[in-house]
Structure formats: structure tokens, C-alpha cells
Design a protein around this nucleic acid. Structure first.
Length: 920
RNA sequence: GCCGAAGUGGCGGAAUGGCAGACGCAGAGGUCUCAAAAACCUCCGGGGGCAACCCCGUGUGGGUUCGACUCCCACCUUCGGCACCA
């Protein structure tokens, strides 16, 4: 490098040599190793474990890992025994898709990628205990994933069922609901289809209520909690039974779920989901063809298509009628795809007067609208233009005929609210018409995948015994090592084509049997990894309960918000199952969750013109939803060569490999150093904020590090290791001597020295508090402020030899700064310590304690306001009484001038802060 | 449509009832230098004034308060999530 000689000459911070040196020393000394026991309190800080991708980490990842590293390093210095591990979410679609794309075997590719990640994470100086590294695709890990699968299985929480599931035609596998984003595959963005297939599910719905109530006990952002609440989607209501006229006996009914049983009197039709099993039963022969056609169309339609026909209701009449149980009126039964089979009972009672969707449907198909609550004056069911979901009081209805003969209608005049609903439900229950129920939107968790790269599901299918769990002592069911692992698309996993794998003997009867060939989705592996870190090398158990008890739950969990309803829900579920099984004693795995913001990069693209968009749609004819209607696209590498730069259109978009805008920590560390990279990522914005990456920013941070380095190095010769007693003596004397004598007397601390020392101790306090509160940007700013003051002090010194009192202060600074910097810029910190001749990494030192006497200001600045507007400032000695402050404020010349002609109504004195004079 | 987060200089942001704009970027001027870079110093929200100073200013409109960027109500905009859930 041509600029190195100059750097040496100018006494620059030689970060290349220094950072490499410390990385190596930390590694060889095992600095970050942590033991499973200690007298100190424990702290468990965890990052979402990543799946290692080929591009390696970007500076975006650093924005996640570095702040948690700072928090963990700070905890260590505060005296905690800190678990801060890292591992690889190696199984699953992301890794397998990458392997397919590269024509590699994931078995070889994944460890390579993981090694690269590890190298990069070490490069930026993250304090992971690498002796605890785990990899979910290794048998000594997935053995326990399988064991936990069986734990769920034995507890009745894992089952195989035939269901219409999400199928990704591109990745050739089924997906969990949580992996379908806007009707598309989370990995490849392909439109997802519904296919009926036998699949494995975890019965997470059994835990819906506990998953909901547990949210109140943890410190997560409101946003994530709310997302989980909505995903669980608890709603209270009633299930009401409707008899189908002429088809059923009195015992067989169509059951519907409603949150508004109070509107039952206005139910003028029923709607079944197209997939509802009773459709075939109720449909009359003359409507059979139309019904069948509609069903098929609905089945072919993707989720997106159902949504794209949004608001335009479709449906067909089945020809059948049911009895409204409270009015005795016959009402028609329709099928329509706005009713979802997956929710409630797959059938609804439609109340057009009080539900907008039902209203639109009723108007389109000319079905009567009967308001249950009073409408606005002059409005009737025939003249209403929209549904009235709220408002009004209940109208009077005649008692129902037949089964309900003789019952009065006691609800007339009740308001349209929850309370009324609460009165209706028991009334319906008493009459055997319905009952109160709670419904959830949460669906069971689909875990099986028709893919190779996952933990095999440890089940054997025996012709004689049926489904049999693989016994614990036969775990792991090893994933066979094969050449061809690509998904087949047949609906079966590639494992089905490997006879040696499939054919086995039944663990129960010993007869010939077939292994389950589906594997578990990657989310199974990530649902318990936080426990494995506590005891990563245990080959007798998933984890030793005592060790897990020591470390868990995770105190601080940091990661992106994109796992809000998947991983973060699944892990909570597994934790609760393990709790119920007596394996652990806590119910929530992650006490505090912090979500870092996205990292955006300024990225060149091109505008997509209207006709071009239309072309794209036509090319792909069959799926109108297939081409996202974007007006801008990232430039592909070849386009960058062909399109002149003047035509590029720049936008801020998420930094990611496939957008070609990734900045790697490798380049940044090489150019500016790991510490500069760390500091910049911390400084640029609050942790949760979305950040726009800029090379300018890291360059500026690099300048700051150099400036601080030079300043520190320049002051280094004045360091006196015995500064503590000297300073203590000075402080003892300073208190007794008048402030003004200052620098004349080398035996006391002068004005400037006390000011600088105050700043130092204020900085100690602020940096600690800010790290604690994840406010790293202001922690760095505080250090910069201190640097500015220290620099001014140096300038005032003007190259002169410092007095003994100044040398004592400088020594305190020289020794404290490495400690303050250690969590943020650990390489720099240890280099400084070495240059002071101090033993031991800053990482292992106690966090400095600020001197409460030193942070006190000498004087207070009182803000003087008139009617809340700033008019004057007074500098007064500490301890001036409120009465004196008020008098002095009113007496100030500026106030006198302002107040002369005005009537003082009131004076507010905020002790130590301000005086506000209220005038008329 | 519903839920959540957020709107402050040219830019990233600070202040979360009490001096708006800390810290940094960009910009302007200066010192050093043959020159440049680096470094260092000064200025840097808008308007007015020779000046001391004065007025305006935190998305918009109301409100609470002695006092509001901060709390409350309504609205607008942006971002993130969900989306026919009966």
C-alpha cells in the first residue's frame, strides 16, 4: 500500500496491523470462552442465528451483530457471566436453493459458507464463544430436533393429516402459512397454490391462548407483540346451528361461527366455503353443475386471484334452504369464495344489514336485507346503501315459531354493543340454538417439506402397526448422503427414491416398513437452538436441564422484525411444550427482544415504462398477478454496461445480494478498520431505525478514530501509573481552596482541569447508560464530545509540560478511555492498554464508575422566561435558594425592561432550572 | 380497509413537559504549505438589523399547560405488517 509510509510518518492509527494482532491474541488466549457456572450473575445475549449464504455477511448484518456485541461486552465488564454464542441455521430452503443454483451439494457447501461467515464475524471483532458453535444440519444437532419432534408427537402435538396446503411450484414443496407472504413463496416469490396432500402438522393451536397471554410477560416491541396477537386472532362469539330444510334429520345441522349472534334475526342467507364438505350434500340436482363449476374455479384460483377479485363478490345458489332458528324463516344456502374453509366452521350466517361483505353479496344477488338494529330515520332494508356495523338500538321481533314457541323477545331497545352480544349468547344456549365459542385465526403449523435438506421426520409407517415413532436409541435418523437431492415435484421428497433409506423394519413389530420421507422445515431446527447453546456438546440429551436452567431464558434477543410471526411464534410454542413436559422451568424463551432497522443502499435502477409493464403481463398470460406492478427495477450487471449512467435512476433499497448493492465488512475493514466500521454502524442512527448506507459516514468515523488516536498518543508520555493517590490528594485539597486560584497552584486542580474531569465522568455515566438502553448513537456522540473537550485542553496546553495536577488528570483519562471504548472499539482499547503497560484485555476489566462529585456542575444556569419565552439566562452558584433565584431573575436588567409596564400574575420557579414569569 | 412505527436544518440525527437543532456529514472562510492532501481554527435553520438584539420556526389544524418537538383529539404523508377471518 502506497499510503502506509505516510501513515507511519504522521503517527496514524495503523489499524491493519493492530487489529490483526488483537484478533489473533484474543483467539489464542480463548478470551471469549465462557463457563457454565460462576459466582457472577448470568446474562444471555443472543442474535438470531443466520443461515450462511454465499455472499457472506454485509455491513447490514454488522448493524445487528455489533450492537448486541457492545451490550454483551459491557455486561461482561459490569461483572456478568455472559453467554454470547453463534451458530448456523443450516438446514432448510434458503441453503438448499442456493446449493441447487450453484450446482453444489449442500453438505459441502454449507460448511464452507459457515466458515466464511465465521471469518467475517471474527474480522469485526464480535466476542462470540466459538467453542459453542452449532450447526443445525449436523447429526449431533438434528438428532435432538428429531427427539423434540417425537416429544411433541407423544404429547399429541404432531399429527399427519390431509389438508389443502400451500404448494410452491418453483421450490416444489409445501409451505407453512407463515412462509406465504402476499400469496407468494417467502424464498422465491412464486405464487403459491393450494393442493390437498397428507402433511405433518404441529398443533400450535392448542397453545393459542397461552401464546397470547404470554405476550404480556415479555419485553418486546409493541409492533411485534401486536403482529403476534393479530396472527393468533382470538375472537369471541357463538356457534349457531341451522337445519337444512328437507335434507337433514333434526340432528344434522350447518354450523356457523359468528361474532355477532345478536344479528341472527337479520340473517337472510347462509354461505358455505366452496370446499365445505356439506356442499355436495345440500346442493339440489338442478344446481349441481353450476355449483361444481364454481368449486373447481375457486380451487384453481390462487390466493392472489381471490384477492385480486377483491370486493367483487361471486357465488352460486345451491338450491337448498335452511331454517333461521330464531325467526323460523327459510333462508337460501349459497356457496362463495369470500368464505374461507380454514376459519371458523367454513360457513357463515350472512347478515347483510350489518356486515358490508354480506351486504354487497345480498345486493348483487337480490337477497333481502333485514336490519336488526334501528337504521337512520326513513331507512329500511330496501333503501340502505351500506351495512351498519354499529349504532342503533335493537328492533322488536316476533317470537320464533316452532321449536321456540312461546318464548318472548326480550332484547328490543338494547344498544348495538358487546354487552348486548353477551346477553344474547346465554339466551341462545338456553334454547339449544347455539353456544358461546372462541375462535382463532392461528392455524396449525405445517412442518413437513418435500425436500432433501432438512431433518428427516423420525416416523416409520408400518402396514401392521401404522404410524410408529422411531425409538430414542435409534436416533438420529440420518439424512442419507446422496448425489441427487433436487426436489422432485411429485409431492414426495427426494428421499422417497432412495430404497436404502425408505425400506426399514418396524420398531414395534419388526416387520418390513417404510420410513417417512418428508423432512422438517428449517423452522423446527430454529425453534430450540437457543437451548442448545447452553450445552452444545451434550450427546446424551438435547441439553442438560440444570445448565439450561442456569443460562435460560435468553435475556436479550436481537434480530430483524421479519420473523415476527414465524420463528418467534414457533419458539415460544416449543418452549411452552418443553415446559409442560417438565424439561425447563420457564415459559417464555426470550425476555427482551430488540429489532434492528433495515440497511438501505443507494442503488441504480431503471424506470419501467407503462407499456413494458403491460408486455410483461401479456407474456405471462395465465397469471395476472404474477408480475408485480413495479415502476422501477434494479439494474442487472449487464444493464449497467449497456445503459448510460445518465439514465440510471437511483433509489434507496434494502441492501441484498440479489440487488447487487452489498457492501461487505471485508472491504470496509480493509479500508477503514473494524473499529471504524463498528463505530460508524453504532453512530449512524438509533438501532431500530432504517439506515441509509454511506461510505462518507464511515470515512468520517475513520477520521475521528485517527484524531482520537493522535490525541491519545500525544498525551501518552505524560502518563503516570501512580496517578490515583496523586489525584486523590489533589481532590481532597481542591475542595477547600477558592476556585480562582486555579493553575497558579500545582497542588490543586484548576478550573480547566476540573471542567475536563467533569466531562470525563459525565461521559462515563452517559456511555454506560446509553449502552444499557441500546442508544449507541448517543454513546458515540458523547465520546466525540469528550474528545472535543480533551482536544481543546491539549491546545490550551500548547505543547508545554503539564503540571503534576494536569498529569494526574491526563493519566486518569488515558487509563479510562480504553475502558469506555472497549465495548465499542475493542481493538483500539486493547492496543491502548498495552501501550500504557497495563496487563489484561480491557474486555476483562471492570467498567469504570463515575465519581458523583466530579459530575456535579459548579454553577447552575437558570433560564428566565416571560410567558414561556426565553428572555434571559442567569448563572448562579449551586445552592441558591428558590426565593433568591426568583428575586435575581426579576431583578435582571433585561427582565426589568420587559416587565416595567406589565402586570405580573404569577412566577413559576423550577428548582435549578428556570424561572417563568406569567404576565397579563 | 385494519394494525404498528415515524414525520425536527441541505442530509443522518439530538433533546421526550422546561435554552430546539447535541454529535456528525455536506457547505463557506481562515491557518500551515511553493502547491495540494492531511491536520487545525471559525462560521453554518429562515427573515430583519451597522450592532446589542428582535421576529418566525419541530407535517397540518385544534386542545391541555405558566410552559408542548414532547401529552390529548382530528387530519395529511411516509415506511413496515396484515388483509373478504364472519
Amino acid at each position: 500500500m502506497s499510503d502506509e509510509p505516510r501513515e507511519e510518518r504522521e503517527n496514524r492509527y495503523d489499524f491493519r496491523q493492530i487489529e490483526a494482532k488483537w484478533r489473533e491474541r484474543w483467539e489464542t488466549s480463548g478470551l471469549f470462552r465462557v463457563e457454565n457456572q460462576s459466582d457472577r450473575p448470568k446474562f444471555y445475549g443472543l442474535d438470531f442465528f443466520p443461515y450462511p449464504s454465499g455472499a457472506g455477511i454485509s455491513v447490514g448484518h454488522c448493524r445487528n451483530y455489533v450492537p448486541l456485541d457492545v451490550a454483551c461486552r459491557h455486561k461482561v465488564m459490569q461483572g456478568y457471566n455472559v453467554l454470547h454464542p453463534m451458530g448456523w441455521d443450516a438446514f432448510g430452503q434458503p441453503a438448499e436453493n442456493e446449493a441447487i443454483k450453484r450446482g453444489r451439494n449442500p453438505r459441502e457447501m454449507v460448511p464452507e459458507y459457515a466458515a466464511n461467515y465465521k471469518r467475517q464475524l471474527k474480522l469485526v471483532g464480535i466476542s462470540y464463544d466459538w467453542s459453542r458453535e452449532i450447526n443445525s444440519s449436523l447429526p449431533d444437532y438434528y438428532r435432538w430436533t428429531q427427539w423434540l419432534f417425537l416429544l411433541l408427537y407423544r404429547r399429541g402435538l404432531a399429527y399427519r393429516a390431509n389438508a389443502a396446503v400451500n404448494w410452491c411450484p418453483e421450490d416444489k414443496t409445501v409451505l407453512a402459512n407463515e412462509e406465504v407472504v402476499n400469496g407468494r413463496c417467502w424464498r422465491c416469490d412464486t405464487l403459491v397454490e393450494k393442493r390437498p396432500m397428507p402433511q405433518w402438522f404441529f398443533k400450535i393451536t392448542d397453545y393459542a391462548d397461552r401464546l397470547l397471554s404470554g405476550l404480556d410477560t415479555i419485553q418486546w416491541s409493541d409492533g411485534i407483540k401486536q403482529q403476534q396477537r393479530e396472527w393468533i386472532g382470538r375472537s369471541e362469539g357463538a356457534e349457531v346451528a341451522f337445519s337444512v330444510i328437507g335434507v337433514f334429520g333434526t340432528d344434522d345441522k350447518i354450523r356457523v361461527f359468528t361474532t355477532r349472534p345478536d344479528t341472527l334475526w337479520g340473517a337472510t342467507f347462509l354461505v358455505l366455503a366452496p370446499e365445505h364438505p356439506l356442499v355436495d350434500v345440500v346442493t339440489t340436482p338442478e344446481h349441481a353443475t353450476a355449483t361444481q363449476e364454481y368449486r373447481e374455479r375457486a380451487q384453481r384460483a390462487t390466493e392472489i386471484e381471490r384477492q385480486s377479485t377483491e370486493r367483487v363478490k361471486t357465488g352460486v345458489f345451491t338450491g337448498a334452504y335452511a331454517d333461521n332458528p330464531v325467526t323460523g324463516e327459510p333462508i337460501p344456502i349459497w356457496i362463495a369464495d369470500y368464505v374461507l374453509m380454514g376459519y371458523g366452521t367454513g360457513a357463515i350466517m350472512a347478515v347483510p344489514a350489518h356486515d358490508q361483505r354480506d351486504f354487497e353479496f345480498a345486493r348483487k344477488f337480490d337477497i333481502p336485507v333485514v336490519p336488526v338494529y334501528e337504521t337512520e330515520a326513513g331507512q329500511t332494508g330496501a333503501t340502505m346503501t351500506e351495512a351498519l356495523p354499529a349504532g342503533g338500538v335493537m328492533r322488536a321481533f316476533a317470537p320464533a315459531p316452532g321449536a321456540l314457541a312461546g318464548t318472548e323477545f326480550p332484547f328490543a331497545g338494547l344498544p348495538n354493543n358487546k354487552e348486548t352480544v353477551g346477553k344474547i349468547i346465554p339466551w341462545l344456549e338456553a334454547r339449544g340454538v347455539g353456544q358461546g365459542v372462541v375462535n382463532f385465526r392461528l392455524r396449525d403449523w405445517l412442518i413437513s417439506r418435500q425436500r432433501y435438506w432438512g431433518a428427516p421426520i423420525p416416523i416409520v409407517h408400518c402396514p401392521a402397526c401404522g404410524e410408529v415413532a422411531v425409538p430414542d436409541d435409534q436416533l438420529p435418523v440420518l439424512l442419507p448422503d446422496v448425489e441427487k437431492y433436487q426436489p422432485t415435484g411429485t409431492g414426495e421428497s427426494p428421499l422417497a427414491n432412495i430404497p436404502e433409506f425408505v425400506n426399514t423394519t418396524c420398531p414395534q413389530c419388526g416387520g418390513p416398513a417404510r420410513r417417512e420421507t418428508d423432512t422438517m422445515g428449517g423452522t423446527a431446527c430454529s425453534s430450540w437452538y437457543y437451548l442448545r447453546f447452553a450445552d452444545p456438546h451434550n450427546n446424551r440429551q438435547a441439553f442438560d436441564p440444570a445448565i439450561a436452567q442456569y443460562w435460560l431464558p435468553v435475556d436479550l434477543y436481537a434480530g430483524g422484525a421479519e420473523h415476527a410471526v414465524s420463528h418467534l411464534m414457533y419458539s415460544r410454542f416449543w418452549t411452552k411444550v418443553m415446559f409442560d413436559a417438565g424439561l425447563i422451568t420457564f415459559e417464555e424463551p426470550f425476555l427482551q427482544l430488540r429489532n434492528q432497522g433495515m440497511l438501505l443502499a443507494y442503488t441504480p435502477g431503471r424506470e419501467i415504462k407503462r407499456d413494458e409493464r403491460a408486455d410483461a403481463l401479456n407474456d405471462d398470460g395465465e397469471d395476472e398477478g404474477d408480475e408485480p406492478l413495479e415502476d422501477w427495477k434494479v439494474l442487472k450487471p449487464e444493464e449497467k454496461a449497456t445503459i448510460p449512467e445518465s439514465e440510471w435512476v437511483w433509489r434507496w433499497v434494502k441492501m441484498s445480494k440479489n440487488k447487487g448493492n452489498v457492501v461487505t465488512p471485508d472491504e470496509m475493514a480493509a479500508q477503514y478498520g473494524a473499529d471504524s466500521l463498528r463505530l460508524f454502524g453504532l453512530f449512524v442512527a438509533p438501532f431500530e431505525e432504517t439506515v441509509q448506507w454511506s461510505d462518507k459516514g464511515i470515512e468520517a468515523m475513520h477520521r475521528y478514530v485517527n484524531r482520537l488516536w493522535r490525541l491519545w498518543t500525544e498525551m501518552r508520555p505524560f502518563y503516570d501509573p501512580e496517578w490515583r493517590p496523586a489525584l486523590a490528594r489533589l481532590l481532597a485539597q481542591t475542595g477547600a481552596i477558592a476556585r480562582d486560584e486555579g493553575d497558579q497552584n500545582p497542588l490543586i486542580l484548576g478550573e480547566d482541569e476540573r471542567k475536563l474531569r467533569r466531562k470525563l465522568h459525565q461521559t462515563i455515566r452517559k456511555v454506560g447508560d446509553d449502552i444499557e438502553n441500546f442508544r449507541f448513537n448517543t454513546a458515540v456522540a458523547a465520546l466525540m464530545e469528550f474528545t472535543n473537550e480533551w482536544s481543546a485542553f491539549r491546545n490550551a496546553l500548547g505543547g508545554a509540560q503539564p503540571s503534576p495536577s494536569q498529569a494526574a488528570l491526563l493519566s486518569e483519562i488515558l487509563e479510562t478511555l480504553p475502558l469506555l471504548m472497549s465495548p465499542l472499539a475493542p481493538h483500539l482499547a486493547d492496543e491502548w492498554r498495552e501501550r500504557l503497560g497495563l496487563a489484561g484485555s480491557a474486555f476483562k476489566q471492570a467498567w469504570p464508575v463515575f465519581d458523583p462529585a466530579a459530575v456535579e456542575e459548579d454553577a447552575m444556569t437558570i433560564v428566565v422566561q416571560i410567558n414561556g419565552k426565553l428572555r434571559d439566562r442567569l448563572t448562579l452558584p449551586l445552592g441558591t435558594s428558590d426565593a433568591e433565584v426568583e428575586a435575581l431573575a426579576l431583578a435582571s436588567p433585561k427582565m426589568q425592561a420587559e416587565l416595567s409596564a406589565r402586570q405580573i400574575r404569577k412566577v413559576i420557579v423550577v428548582p435549578g432550572k428556570l424561572v417563568n414569569v406569567v404576565v397579563g
